[in-house]
Design a protein around this nucleic acid. Structure first.
Lengths: 111, 111
DNA sequence: CACATTAATCGTATATTTGCGATATAAGAT
DNA sequence: ATCTTATATCGCAAATATACGATTAATGTG
């Protein structure tokens, strides 16, 4: 990278990119899926489900948490995670506002 | 990575992750924005707009094209790109189907 | 034909991500 | 107090991503 130019873009562009980056690995998609399909929060069950080592899963969880996609609370020796729905709503609205307004008129563009 | 485990996940998980990866860089978000806001296809105007070298922009365009987010046609010495709206629709529906059904009942989850 | 223009590709340096085992931490159980 | 269980963190190796300049390819222009 020589010197990351990411700062040269707008904050919104960076935010969207960061959100996307958090979801840019199948393991993290799988984690989100597990979390989304439970009413209760999960802990290490994710480790059993995913084909990854415990430390790797922990790292993915940390990244999802850093990106704000999930919330996590430490409960003694075990941790509890769940989806941060507000973050997804924010992403969804920013994502669609970027594209959806223009979709109709551009549908039959040149290429 | 030692040996990429990405194949161990479902195809849908990989597809979603790939889509997200394609959007995981602010430069690529910016490119998509430019393409979305024009009725005509653009070529090297993107290079003028972005704070990146021509070769770098070309690389980002290639990644977006490989991921199927944009279409591109070579027209002599210049190239013409535009958004692949169908891909975005597919992503949007898969993305929302992953989460939206569960959103309402989980809204007030534990953490 | 020589030259300018536009964009892709190659080679390379550096940064970041992914993954794991080992270790540390924090609580409950014995 | 020691042991067990559940997780996080550290340190490292390998893979990918990011960025750029130089080069190449393709076409139009003088």
């Amino acid at each position: 990278m020589a010197f990351h130019k990411k700062e040269e873009f707008t904050q919104k562009e960076q935010d969207l990119a960061n959100f996307a980056k958090a979801m840019s690995h199948p393991a993290r998609i799988a984690i989100l899926k597990v979390l989304a399909h439970r009413n209760e929060c999960i802990c290490g069950e994710i480790v059993d489900i995913l084909p990854l080592a415990q430390s790797t899963v922990s790292q993915h969880l940390k990244e999802l948490k850093n990106a704000g996609l999930i919330n996590g609370t430490v409960d003694g020796p075990r941790s509890c995670y769940c989806i941060n729905w507000k973050a997804f709503e924010k992403f969804n609205s920013e994502f669609t506002s970027l594209f959806n307004n223009l979709k109709v008129k551009n549908e039959k563009a040149c290429c």
